[in-house]
Simulated assay, not measured.
Amino acid sequence: MSDQPSETPSAPTHDEAHGGALGARLNWLRAAVLGANDGVVSTAGIVVGVAGATDDRGTLLTAGLAGLLAGSMSMAAGEYVSVSTQRDSEKAALALEKRELREQPEAELAELTELLEQRGLSGEVAREAARELTERDALRAHARVELGIDPDDLTNPWHAAAASFVAFTCGALLPLLAIVLPPADWRLPVTVLSVLAALALTGWSSARLGSAAVGPAVVRNMAGGALAMAVTYGAGTLLGAVGV
């Protein structure tokens, strides 16, 4: 035969394993960029809004720190809950597959063969590949081919929560420092320019990581951040004028 069972897409070659690991790293990088972007926009909105009402450094620092802590904790908690749910679903799917392999092995072998045929293998090669994969590790074979899950690399909610916390905090530090460190007359322009530059960078990074057009992503990101700061600054100015 010209085709060999080892060529099946479910058999993890070095290149496939490397590609899967690279894809996972890119997903983490995209999540980190988006988390940092959220930190920049939300904290900038808070401190610029407060700056519209007062130029007191202590008040600005307190508001910025409160926004940073609240946002980072919210991001971490949300990511933990989301990834925990995903992990529970993966574990339940693996448990069900393990039971089916124990109770109806022939049916599962036929199912694996059919799945391999759908990936482009001929019937004979698919049957041989399914038998070899089943003899090697039936659960792993079905998990990878049927469920798209690596049993040894389930999602970790603690890692996801920590990554979200760190990413948001790093993004939030920029507008916080930009609003409290310069002299009073320079705080707003320094903050606005710093935030827009950071949003241009995160927009560029997210576009490159997602293989999308860079220009529209950068413009959208900067426009959204500018709108958020304009709205909150206007609200802060109005509230400060009426003495609220």
Rank of each mutant, 00 (worst) to 15 (best):
M1F: 11
E7C: 13
E7A: 13
E7I: 13
E7L: 13
P9C: 07
P9R: 07
T13G: 15
T13H: 11
H18K: 12
G19T: 13
G19Y: 11
G19K: 12
G20N: 15
L22M: 10
L22A: 15
G23P: 08
A24L: 14
L26G: 05
L26T: 15
W28K: 13
L29M: 14
A31K: 00
A31V: 03
G35C: 01
N37W: 03
G39R: 00
S42Y: 08
S42Q: 09
A44T: 04
A44D: 04
R57G: 07
G58F: 02
L60S: 03
T62A: 10
A63M: 01
G64V: 02
L65H: 05
L65V: 13
A66R: 04
A70W: 02
M73S: 09
S74P: 08
S74V: 09
M75P: 01
A76M: 09
V81W: 03
V81Q: 02
V83G: 01
S84K: 06
T85P: 00
T85Q: 10
T85N: 11
T85Y: 07
Q86G: 07
D88E: 14
S89M: 15
E90M: 14
K91L: 15
A95Y: 10
K98N: 15
R102K: 14
E103G: 09
Q104I: 05
Q104M: 10
P105S: 06
E106C: 11
A107K: 14
E108Q: 15
L109C: 01
A110Y: 06
L115Q: 06
L115I: 10
L115A: 07
L116D: 05
L116W: 08
Q118V: 09
S122D: 14
R127K: 10
E128S: 12
A129P: 08
A130S: 05
R131V: 13
R131E: 10
E132S: 12
E132A: 11
L133F: 08
A138F: 12
H142M: 03
A143F: 03
A143C: 01
A143Y: 03
R144G: 01
R144M: 13
V145R: 11
V145P: 02
E146Y: 09
D152E: 15
D152I: 07
D153T: 12
D153C: 11
L154W: 13
T155N: 11
A160H: 08
A167K: 04
F168T: 03
C170G: 10
C170F: 12
C170H: 10
G171S: 10
A172R: 02
L173W: 05
L173M: 12
L173A: 07
P175Q: 06
P175E: 05
L176G: 00
A178N: 04
A184Y: 09
A184S: 15
D185L: 11
P189E: 08
S194C: 13
V195G: 04
V195N: 05
L196G: 00
L196A: 08
A197C: 14
A200D: 02
W204S: 12
W204G: 00
W204R: 09
S206R: 09
A207T: 04
L209A: 07
A212H: 09
A213I: 06
A213D: 11
A213L: 12
A217N: 05
A217M: 03
V219A: 08
V219T: 08
R220F: 07
A223T: 09
A223W: 00
G224M: 04
G225E: 04
A228H: 03
T232W: 01
G234W: 08
G234R: 10
G236T: 04
G236L: 05
L238S: 10
L239V: 10
G240C: 09
G243R: 12
V244F: 14
